[in-house]
């Protein structure tokens, strides 16, 4: 049945008109772990995310999710299989209320066909309780009736997490969840990720090494589209090649 590895890539490759962004990446994500993907700017982290979630087609290699080859499955289907992503920039539905943001995700799983254009909106109110529960879990319940656009940045990221959680994903892909946040927000979102990671697998791109050290069981370092190193935080941070890549990148 379900093995130890939830997601595996073999020789994953992506070229953009001659430029190789991802070059033969082999990843193995262990079920139940929090796995970080780090590396200097332009290392190909977000491209890997886009390949895994099928927002971009791979040029070569294969992706296995729970042992199934998903290399040529559509983006919406991948999401329905339980592999759900977030985006680098906070990604909400700005002019829908905070409650509706979460409810539209719940609707996909729990409300039968969403093509029913003849049903009244009251048919969605059964989902309100579930949506409020999710909002409460990320401390957003008091803001339920606000439009998402009115939330401060840190709260938007929390809303994005709640929306992702509404799909009960087996594997969550978080693209820089603490990027651009004030210090106190970083702490809150880190605690939140720790909380929601219980019982599922998380793969995250993160620049903040403090957050990585705090959260992640395993770390893969990418550089110029290839895997430079892999291991736990102590192993990776002691690796001279990794230090050089980071220092080199800063001097570039």
């Amino acid at each position: 049945m379900k093995g130890d590895t939830i997601l595996e890539t073999r020789g994953l490759r992506k070229e953009f008109k001659g430029f190789v962004a991802v070059n033969g990446v082999d990843l193995k994500i262990r079920r139940g772990s929090i796995h970080a993907l780090i590396g200097p700017n332009g290392a190909g982290k977000t491209t890997v995310f886009n390949l895994l979630t099928r927002f971009l087609p791979a040029t070569g290699g294969s992706i296995l999710y729970n042992g199934t080859d998903i290399t040529s499955v559509g983006a919406a289907s991948v999401a329905r299989m339980g592999l759900v992503r977030s985006f680098q920039i906070s990604s909400t539905f700005p002019h829908m209320t905070v409650l509706e943001n979460v409810r539209v995700a719940l609707q996909r799983r729990h409300a039968g066909s969403s093509y029913r254009f003849w049903h009244s909106e009251r048919s969605l109110s059964v989902l309100d309780a579930g949506a409020m529960e999710l909002l409460a879990s990320v401390e957003l319940a008091p803001y339920a009736q606000l439009e998402a656009v009115e939330l401060p940045y840190g709260r938007k990221r929390a809303l994005e997490l709640a929306t992702t959680l509404a799909l009960e994903p087996e594997l969550m892909l978080l693209d820089e969840p603490t990027q651009g946040m004030a210090h106190e927000d970083v702490g809150r979102v880190t605690a939140l990720i720790k909380k929601v990671a219980a019982g599922r697998t998380v793969l995250m791109v993160e620049h903040n090494l403090g957050v990585v050290e705090d959260l992640c069981d395993r770390i893969t370092v990418l550089q110029r589209g290839t895997v430079l190193a892999e291991g736990n935080y102590a192993e990776v941070s002691g690796n001279p090649a990794v230090l050089e890549a980071y220092v080199g990148a800063e001097h570039a």
Binding site: T53, F55, G74, A75, A76, S77, A79, R80, V84, R85, S86, F87, S91, T92, F93, P94, H95, M96, E100, R103, V104, A105, Q107, R108, A111, S113, S114, Y115, R116, F117, W118, H119, S120, E121, S123, L124, T163, L167
Partner: peptide, 24 residues
């Protein structure tokens, strides 16, 4: 106002996000 309309609204607001939630 229908469930379908909610999805349309979500697509209007943020198509990539709607796709990532599993909507075709």
């Amino acid at each position: 106002g229908s469930p379908f309309g909610q999805v349309l609204k979500a697509i209007r607001e943020n198509e990539a996000r709607a796709l990532s939630l599993g909507y075709e």
